[in-house]
Computed example of a mutant assay.
Amino acid sequence: MQYREIGKTGMKVSAISFGASSLGGVFHSLKEETGIEAVHTAVDNGINFIDVSPYYGHLKAEVVLGKALKNIDRSRYYLSTKVGRYGQDGVNTWDYSARKAKESVYESMERLHVDYIDLINIHDIEFADLEQVCNETLPALVDLRREGVVKHVGITNLNLRHFHYVIDHVPAGTVESVLSFCHYTLNDDALVDSLDYFESKEIGVINASPFSMGLLTERGVPDWHPAPEALKRLAQKATAYCKSKGTSIEALAVAFSVNNPRIATTLFSTTNPENVLKTIRYAETPLNEELLAEVKRIFEPGFRDTWVNS
């Protein structure tokens, strides 16, 4: 397993890491004990960075992850969670106020059975008033960092330009990492355009969803997926091509996503322990450059086509 530092945080994390959204039943139903086993399998096989949010499963993911972490020594993992996006009784809610951000951190720690958070993120800032993020939410989290309740502060988003806006409108060192999803994948590598900028600010980069939220899988895109229909057809074609070459699009997707040393880690999510082991194998397999070139050719008509988050 390769380990890379997230910016200047001192956190040296595994190149592939565990996203706990699936523990909330976000993508599929789960058996709690199997999800807990998946977390243990990840840590026992070298993964040392775990990301979650109170939004995932409307608190359920943090609750299940907390049960898993009870039996894992705190020194074996870095833990990331979020503030700003929530939900209750099946209804999504957003609150980026300073008061709610601070309350949320303490509530998350209780659910997760920890007494500090390694990385606290503002969740999906495209839903927020960016002025509030700069002038209220981030200062609240910096207060918690100063107190030692959280160690580091980051932001997450789908729209890359929002990262630039926030970072440019807060004091240097406020934001220590960004978490971008679906922008360093086989069908969309737009994240590379911002790497020089992030490095100039000494900000670490976390990549999420190497499978583009299920687009790049043999199982096929889920019904709710927001990708354009033309892009979904290209993904089906690329998936079939990989299969014809004796491999899977999942294997290529992971190998590609972890291959860039300028990206600290790539998050994937599953509740299946076997899928954890499989994904680690994909991450440790050298990238097939010839296959990558062919798949990129397939995606060319829709390369970097994106969608609105929901």
Rank of each mutant, 00 (worst) to 15 (best):
D118R: 06
V205L: 00
T306P: 11
R145T: 11
S29A: 15
F256Y: 10
S212I: 05
L119Y: 11
E300I: 15
N92Y: 07
Y77E: 06
V63P: 07
Y55G: 06
G302T: 02
V83Y: 07
V175K: 12
N275G: 07
C134Q: 07
T156Y: 09
S14M: 01
G35Y: 01
L130H: 09
H58Q: 10
R74E: 06
K82F: 10
I47F: 00
V83C: 14
R281N: 15
V13L: 01
I117C: 13
L267K: 02
Y86P: 04
A283K: 01
E290Y: 12
K232S: 13
P301D: 06
S257P: 05
D124S: 08
V308D: 10
L112R: 12
V133M: 08
G302S: 07
L252I: 09
A264K: 04
A264W: 03
L79G: 02
A293P: 12
T34R: 15
V276S: 06
Y56P: 04
V150E: 08
L130G: 00
R99E: 11
A283V: 02
E136Q: 10
A172K: 15
A190Y: 11
Y3G: 01
H123T: 07
V308I: 12
V83A: 11
L277R: 08
C242A: 10
V295D: 11
L30F: 03
I50M: 10
E250N: 05
N259R: 10
R262M: 07
V63Y: 08
F256D: 00
Q236R: 14
A140F: 02
G19Q: 08
G19W: 04
T174C: 14
L215G: 02
H164A: 14
L130K: 05
S310C: 05
G57M: 00
P210E: 01
A230S: 15
A235Q: 09
V178C: 03
C134H: 01
S104K: 06
G173F: 06
T271R: 11
S17E: 00
N260G: 13
Y77G: 12
G87A: 12
S17T: 12
L30I: 05
L186F: 03
